[in-house]
Simulated scan of single mutants.
Amino acid sequence: MAQPSSGNHRKGKGKRRAERTSRAGLTALVVTVCTFVGGAIAYGELSDDQESTSLDETAKTELEADTSSEPDPVEVDEPDPEETPEPTPLYYEGDGTFRYTEGTGQTWGEGSNHYRFNIAVEEGTELDLDEFTETAVNTLSDERSWIAGDVSFELVGEDDQADFTLYLVSPHQRSVLCESQDVSVSCRNGDAVVINAARWLNAVEHWETDLESYRKYVINHEVGHRLGYGHEVCGEDDTPSPVMAQQTYQLGGCEENAWPYPNGEEYLSGPPGEYGGPRLPADSYDD
Rank of each mutant, 00 (worst) to 15 (best):
M1H: 13
M1L: 12
P4L: 12
S6W: 03
N8Q: 11
G14W: 12
A18I: 06
A18T: 12
G25R: 15
L26P: 00
V31S: 15
V31H: 05
C34P: 02
C34M: 14
T35A: 15
G38K: 05
I41A: 07
A42Y: 07
E45R: 09
L46H: 10
E51Q: 08
S52K: 15
S54W: 04
L55H: 10
T61F: 10
E64G: 07
A65L: 15
S69N: 13
E70N: 10
E70H: 07
P71A: 13
P79L: 08
D80G: 01
P81R: 09
E83T: 08
T88K: 03
E93Q: 12
G94A: 06
G96M: 07
R99T: 14
Y100P: 00
Q106P: 12
Y115P: 06
R116Y: 05
A120K: 06
G124L: 11
E126H: 09
F132H: 03
E134H: 13
T135H: 05
R144E: 09
S145C: 09
W146A: 02
A148K: 06
V156E: 04
V156D: 04
Q161L: 06
Q161T: 13
D163E: 10
Y167K: 10
L168V: 10
L168R: 08
V176L: 08
V176D: 03
S184W: 01
C187K: 02
I195Q: 09
A198G: 11
A198N: 09
A198V: 02
L201F: 06
A203K: 11
W207Y: 11
E208C: 00
E212I: 02
I219M: 03
N220K: 03
V223P: 05
H225V: 01
R226D: 12
L227P: 05
G228R: 10
G228T: 04
G228L: 04
E232M: 12
E232R: 10
V233Y: 02
G235A: 13
E236A: 15
T239G: 03
Q247E: 15
L251M: 14
E256Y: 09
A258M: 05
Y261K: 04
Y261L: 04
L280D: 11
Y285M: 02
